[in-house]
Write a protein that binds this DNA or RNA. Structure first.
Length: 513
RNA sequence: GGCGAGGUAGCUCAGUUGGUUAGAGCACAGGACUCAUAAGCCUGGGGUCGGCGGUUCGAAUCCGCCCCUCGCUACCA
């Protein structure tokens, strides 16, 4: 009965510290994962690290470490980030694990079998310092030396034996797939880029390297290691025990429902990955969502600009729920979004402290003082009360739709509106004026507002798991009742237990620091 | 250069197939209230909707030209 749902983040390349972009991808994926669980889905949420390649090998050498040991350490910082970000990933995959190399080997064999791999030579102008090949028109001659126009570093003509993947053969199949599956690549603006790119024609792809050794060896030719993208992308299958297609996990979760990625790696996911899967005769993921970049004060974060926002530091200063909420509210998923400390503070103070946080505070302390600290039962509700409650219920399909369309922004705005509405309702109803005059009416109002707080908190739970859990604990709602279904039910609050104490949910941020 | 996206209030953006006085949040100013984290609620100012021209009874919305910003343009991830 419960639907399976498989969502992934990119696996991160641990050549440096985790940054805001990593945090963003992970948080976004976690929010979808959590929401799907609220809906009652059986969710598999995967993240991990991509550890092979020349860069890692060099870094390890520089640090005088065995590459595997080096990766163990850095991978660990990404694993600890999942805790800091409060992610609910069910698994954490590393490309240095055996289960992964098994899976990559199988993919390789399948591509060989299908005849989509051949051995040839790769040649071109290569810059050692940039670790990149340049096209003829990307280089120029200076003092008799060839240099790259863009980086200025010297390049040399290199010929390297390499295995190639017949990417060119998949142009039509890819274009057909894009056409038949409108939402395969999202957002649509990015889809157009990919389509235009593929329409221009595809060259075969070099999928092995001999210039370094830190990678998964080509099964039949150990001089080569498998090109890092063929290696990395396969992780999505490895976590399902892939070579074993009879495995429960594989059967339940492949094809993936959505790969959440940054726009910078869209091509690999939207062109190479489907082509590999076509060749391997495996189903394609249902959706690839390329989100935008997080900019700091309108600019790309860079050391020279001094505008780097370290997610770990921001979380230390302001809290993880706060960062999660802010990123989702402020940035429209799919577009680049600018964030700033100034806006973060405003957002925390307005939406969280003044609006949602204070709503909970004012209501619960009112109940404590006037209702023996128990939620009044559902009695004597007036049309206005019912209308308020029903408004959320009626909007549930719309909210689910926003999530299914990755419209996180709209989702949050709608939920926050419920919170505005609840504050207004409380104000207009003036329960404080009814203590003596009409306690029945006062009780009806308080019942209604608690119902709203409960439902709003459930809806915000995927975004701010810690704070909303505190609120739901206060009204004695158990974990398993935190679900979309619970919102749709009537009259299911706990009227017998006393409310637990709720401390200030979100501290306000002072302006002077 | 080619292809694509966009330029709407001080800031971030929404504006459905062209239709009455162009909207929201934040910021700013004023008011009534007190349950609450001096929070919440109400009211208000502020926009030649990038520029010019065209189609139309009527254009932020359609067409043309121009100006500006941004993305993609193949093997660093």
């Amino acid at each position: 009965m419960s639907k399976n749902f498989y969502i992934t983040t990119p696996i991160y390349y641990p050549s440096g510290k985790p940054h805001m972009g990593h945090a963003y991808s992970s948080i976004v994926a976690d929010i979808f994962a959590r929401f799907k669980r609220l809906e009652g889905c059986n969710v598999l949420f995967l993240t991990g690290t991509d550890e092979h390649g020349q860069k890692i090998q060099k870094e390890a050498e520089k640090n005088n470490k065995d590459p595997k040991k080096f990766c163990d350490e850095i991978s660990e910082t990404f694993r600890s980030l999942t805790k800091i970000l409060n992610l609910t990933n069910n698994d954490f995959i590393r490309t240095t694990e055996i289960r992964h190399s098994k899976s990559v080997n199988e993919i390789w064999k399948r591509l060989i079998k299908s005849g989509d791999i051949y051995l040839d030579k790769y040649s071109g102008w290569y810059s050692v310092s940039d670790e990149a090949y340049y096209d003829k028109d990307e280089i120029e001659e200076q003092n008799g030396k060839k240099i790259s126009k863009t980086s200025g570093s010297s390049v040399e003509w290199v010929e390297e034996e390499s295995y190639f993947f017949k990417l060119s053969a998949f142009q039509k199949k890819l274009l057909d797939h894009y056409k038949k599956n409108e939402d395969f690549i999202l957002p649509h603006s990015r889809k157009n880029e990919v389509v235009k790119f593929v329409e221009k024609g595809l060259k075969d792809l070099s999928i092995s390297r001999t210039s370094f050794s830190w990678g998964i060896p080509v099964p039949e030719n150990k001089k080569h290691v498998i090109y890092v993208w063929l290696d990395a992308l396969t992780n999505y299958l490895s976590a399902l025990n892939f070579p074993n297609t009879k495995d429960e996990k594989y059967k339940s979760f492949w094809p993936a429902d959505v790969h959440i990625i940054g726009k910078d790696i869209l091509r690999f996911h939207a062109v190479y990955w489907p082509a590999f899967l076509f060749a391997a005769n495996l189903p394609l993921p249902k959706k690839i969502f390329g989100h935008g970049w997080i900019l700091s004060n309108e600019k790309k974060m860079s050391k020279s600009l001094g505008n780097i926002l370290d997610p770990i530091q921001v979380i230390k200063d302001y809290g993880i729920d706060q960062l999660r909420y802010y990123l989702i509210k402020e940035v429209s998923l799919g577009n680049d979004g600018s964030i700033s400390m100034e806006n973060l503070k405003n957002c925390i103070n307005n939406d969280l402290a003044n609006n949602y946080g204070n709503l909970c505070q004012r209501v619960f302390s009112f109940i404590k003082k006037n209702c023996d600290n128990k939620i009044p039962a559902r009695n004597n509700l007036k049309d206005g009360d019912i209308k308020l409650i029903e408004n959320i219920k009626e909007n549930i399909p719309k909210l689910i739709d926003h999530i299914n369309k990755q419209n996180l922004n709209e989702y949050v705005k709608m939920v926050v509106n419920f919170s505005f509405e609840a504050n207004k309702y409380f104000n207009d109803s003036e329960p404080w004026a009814l203590k003596k005059k009409d306690p029945k009416r006062m009780h009806a109002i308080l019942h209604t507002i608690v119902e709203q707080i409960k439902n709003i908190s459930i809806l915000l739970n995927p975004i701010m798991p810690i704070a909303t859990k505190k609120v739901l604990d206060t009204i004695n709602l158990s974990d398993k009742e935190i679900s979309i279904n619970n919102i749709l039910k009537d009259n299911n609050l706990d009227y017998n237990s006393e409310l637990k104490d709720l401390n200030i949910l979100f501290k306000k941020i002072e302006n002077d620091n």
